[in-house]
Simulated assay, not measured.
Amino acid sequence: MNDTLVTLVGNVATQPEYRDSVTGGMVRFRFAVTARRWDREKQSWTDGPTSFYTVWAWRTLAANLSGSVSVGEPLVVHGRLKVREEDKDGQRRFSADIEALAVGHDLTRGTSAFKRVARADTSLTERPKDLVA
């Protein structure tokens, strides 16, 4: 209920890694977000610092991501921000993860072809009505 929702625009930095889990598929990849600013002195755009996030996706989104996204592609990622803190070698480190709720190609930088995925037939996994307690 009190989640911090963010929308990031950037590029896929590592190949998405897909794994099966007990609750369904899971995919994870690194995502690079670089701020661009207009430099008035140079009269041109310049890159600011790059922030890296680990994006996690589950179930159907994970399966669709693994078949649709490659390194270097521009994306828009919307999801829950999770900041982790850990002590490593006596140093305090922070990292930011995004639990993706929706992901799509950034169409300001190219085109994309959408292909709807057919959902599984739920009648194959439903319990017969006479066995439901």
Rank of each mutant, 00 (worst) to 15 (best):
G110S: 07
R109F: 01
L65E: 02
T7W: 12
V83R: 06
D39T: 14
R92S: 11
T50A: 08
Q91C: 10
T34F: 07
E126S: 07
R37M: 06
E126K: 08
R119T: 04
R93T: 11
G72I: 03
G48F: 03
G79M: 05
E99H: 11
A102S: 14
S70T: 13
F52Y: 15
R116K: 12
K82I: 15
V12Y: 08
F94K: 11
A100Q: 09
F31T: 04
D121N: 01
T14I: 06
L107F: 02
D87S: 11
E41H: 12
S68V: 03
E17M: 04
R59Q: 12
E86I: 04
V71R: 06
D20L: 10
D121M: 03
V22I: 12
Y18A: 12
L75F: 01
G10D: 01
A96R: 04
V77F: 07
V83H: 02
R37I: 03
T34Y: 05
R80N: 12
T46H: 01
A102C: 01
A35G: 08
L61D: 09
V103F: 05
K88R: 14
V33M: 05
L101V: 03
P49W: 14
W38I: 04
S70K: 13
D97I: 01
D130Y: 11
D47N: 13
D89W: 05
D121T: 08
V9T: 13
E17I: 00
S51H: 14
T111A: 07
R19D: 01
D39H: 09
Q43P: 11
